[in-house]
């Protein structure tokens, strides 16, 4: 049912959710790339991650389906449609693993702050460059001394 505009509305509405999640994902990616603050970067990664979770869950959704839990008495009505439980399992574990890895990242940020006194990326790079230059100067002085 392609119209003369070349726009198929069922197609657009059927894919709108994917596009929204991709925009969300890109928001996260933008934070990761553009922001210098390490904590902010971790928040960005979290947003990216959640967008991926949403993408997976929305793939598992069946129109007219319900949550994949049988009645407690196990009288299963064969007419009831259930959503795909497999993505749910994957994402469920991924969320908990995600928070564990996030905390690992935050712990790294804390340690960096203790060593460098800052969590801004460019200041860390500046401190690194300065120490490297000092090292290089020291080495060249030692090398140029007559034996």
């Amino acid at each position: 049912m392609v119209k003369e505009f070349g726009l198929d509305w069922t197609f657009v509405i059927g894919h709108l959710n994917y596009w929204l999640f991709i925009i969300l994902m890109m928001t996260g990616l933008y934070i990761v790339v553009a922001k210098g603050n390490l904590v902010k970067k971790i928040v960005g990664l979290n947003i990216f991650q959640t967008a991926v979770f949403m993408l997976y869950i929305s793939v598992g959704k069946v129109k007219g389906g319900t949550a994949p839990i049988f009645p407690v008495d196990m009288n299963i009505d064969p007419d009831v449609l259930y959503s795909n439980p497999l993505p749910h399992v994957l994402i469920l574990t991924a969320i908990v693993v995600g928070v564990a890895t996030t905390s690992l990242g935050l712990a790294l940020a804390v340690r960096i702050r203790e060593e460098y006194g800052t969590i801004e990326e460019d200041s860390i790079q500046k401190i690194d460059r300065d120490t490297c230059l000092q090292d290089a100067n020291l080495h060249s002085e030692v090398a140029s001394e007559p034996r």
Partner: peptide
């Protein structure tokens, strides 16, 4: 495991 890990992580952050 999950309880213990979450409490451990919190202790590690909070004790600093």
């Amino acid at each position: 495991t999950v309880t213990a890990v979450m409490v451990t992580i919190f202790y590690a952050f909070a004790s600093r």
